[in-house]
């Protein structure tokens, strides 16, 4: 028996919109810890890891660990039928091949049940160890989204370089090149507007902008994005989901041959 009630149902809608273009189908795992997902894109270049902790739900019942294979496009279609203020409850049962999404209006005067078919998905689960990063950049998520969008109109790849001067985003394309530098800037009044750079050593890596732009669909989930860089590892682009968990995107770099 599975019953997860989320007062702020819009969070789940936003999560789906953030990942459904990167990953078409995935297993959602429910355990005592929370509702989670790990899935790679079809080319195994990018990975999304989502965690919504059980404490963040208004009601969380998960009798046994359960994995639900879901087509994310279909789930997104169903969640789009929930109103922006609706409470969403996810219901499932062992041994059935469906999951039910229940939408309740704030005033409790409209209750909708949407039942969706589950599917068997053979997904490869990767072990992602905790790691030390050479540089960690925290910046306003909207600013990062703007940079990726702007650079995406010029080139296909972005070189992200962190030095003690700041974080530099560089691209080159047929029409020319672009270079954007963000310096550390701490705002005491509005910490979410700050750009904070923790650098152990300088690092410079190249990534496909197509993926970065896909990750920025999570911008509505958090005002701040954290970008962790190491020359030995895929970059991690993390959006914290207030009081609930996170959505993390991992992206393998492009390497000079």
């Amino acid at each position: 028996m599975l019953e997860l009630r989320l007062i702020q149902g819009s969070l789940l809608k936003k999560v789906l919109e953030a990942i459904k273009d990167l990953v078409t189908e995935a297993n959602f795992d429910c355990s005592a810890t929370g509702f989670s997902l790990q899935a790679m894109d079809s080319s195994h270049v990018a990975l999304v890891a989502l965690l919504l902790r059980s404490e963040g739900f208004d009601h969380y019942r998960c009798d046994r660990n359960l994995s639900m294979g879901i087509n994310l496009n279909n789930m997104s279609k169903m969640l789009r039928c929930a109103g922006p203020e609706d409470i969403i409850t996810i219901k499932g049962d062992d041994g059935t091949d469906t999951v039910t999404f229940m939408f309740e209006s704030q005033k409790q005067d409209k209750i909708s049940d949407f039942e969706m078919k589950l599917m068997d998905i053979d997904s490869e689960h990767l072990g992602i160890p905790d790691a030390e990063y050479q540089a960690i950049v925290r910046m306003p998520s909207a600013e990062f989204a703007r940079i990726c969008k702007d650079l995406g109109s010029i080139g296909d790849t972005v070189v992200i370089s962190v030095t003690k001067e700041g974080v530099k985003f560089f691209t080159r394309g047929d029409v020319g090149s672009a270079n954007i530098v963000c310096r550390q800037n701490t705002s005491v009044d509005k910490p979410e507007d700050s750009t904070v750079i923790e650098m152990n050593e300088p690092v410079s890596l190249t990534f496909a902008l197509r993926y970065m732009n896909s990750f920025t669909k999570a911008t509505t989930l958090s005002e701040v994005v954290t970008i962790s860089l190491s020359s030995e590892l895929p970059v991690v682009v993390e959006y914290k989901i207030a009081e609930m968990g996170y959505i993390r995107f991992y992206l393998a770099p492009k390497i000079e041959d």
Binding site: L233, P234, Y250, I255
Partner: peptide, 14 residues
Amino acid sequence: DTRQKTLTNYFCSG
């Protein structure tokens, strides 16, 4: 020229 690495170059299955 640049070559795209994949995640399996960095992380193991399991």
